[in-house]
């Protein structure tokens, strides 16, 4: 089975924020929650570059390791998902994540956190595929329809690639060979550098 990965080609990203918009529109995410964002590096300096970043679905996901209720699970395709019915909104995944992926809608006074929301690699959640509950909590489940994440499909320069890690790496390798520069695969060391943790069934299913 394919191992799903994101890759953002910094030589191609033009900071159009099309991926951010595509994500928001596809999943109808609430105001204040940004599953994906574009960060510009050395803004205004020579060598300016942009990177689109969201949950990278890490091999050894820190969010999964620190969650006090163990609400995360990993699909057989390496996608890191979580069960919002179990999430208590403690914010620990947000402390641990190197990419700033977990988002918390404010729920109550004093900035109290609601249930965590993050990129699902367009793979929905533990609810029944394409159910109303799944869409409401996690957004569209494109993977089960045989489609790739909306952000990557929408990318106008094909800077953002999302899909089978081997295919993505091949495309990138060819690009680097042709253009002769820009070989840095940003974030892959952090996200996929550690040994892959075995897939786990949805947390709720274990009880």
């Amino acid at each position: 089975m394919a191992r799903m990965k994101f890759l953002c080609d910094a030589e191609r990203c033009i900071e159009c924020n099309g991926c951010v918009t595509a994500c928001k529109q596809e999943h109808e995410v609430p105001w204040g929650v940004n599953r994906r964002r574009v960060v510009t590096l050395n803004d205004g300096l020579p060598g300016e570059k942009s990177i689109s970043v969201a949950c990278m679905h890490c091999s050894d996901a820190p969010c999964m390791a620190v969650c006090p209720v163990d609400c995360f699970y990993k699909t057989s395709e390496g996608v890191v998902l979580h069960d919002k019915d179990l999430c208590i909104g403690c914010g620990y995944c947000f402390y641990a994540c190197p990419f700033g992926a977990p988002q918390f809608p404010q729920d109550g006074a004093f900035g109290m956190r609601g249930k965590m929301d993050k990129c699902t690699f367009c793979a929905g959640g533990p609810e029944v595929d394409h159910s109303a509950a799944e869409f409401q909590k996690y957004g569209r489940n494109r993977l089960s329809e045989g489609k790739l994440p909306a952000c990557a499909e929408m990318c106008s320069t094909k800077a953002l690639l999302g899909g089978d890690g081997d295919v993505v790496a091949d495309i990138y390798r060819n690009r680097v060979l042709k253009r002769g520069k820009g070989a840095e695969v940003w974030g892959w060391g952090t996200a996929y550098g550690k040994p892959e943790k075995a897939p786990t069934p949805p947390a709720g299913a274990k009880s």
Binding site: N34, R37, V38, V39, T40, L41, D43, L45, G100
Partner: peptide
């Protein structure tokens, strides 16, 4: 020199 158009804490 990192910037982003997404608002929020430490989004950049």
């Amino acid at each position: 020199y990192q910037t982003t158009q997404v608002r929020g804490v430490e989004t950049e």
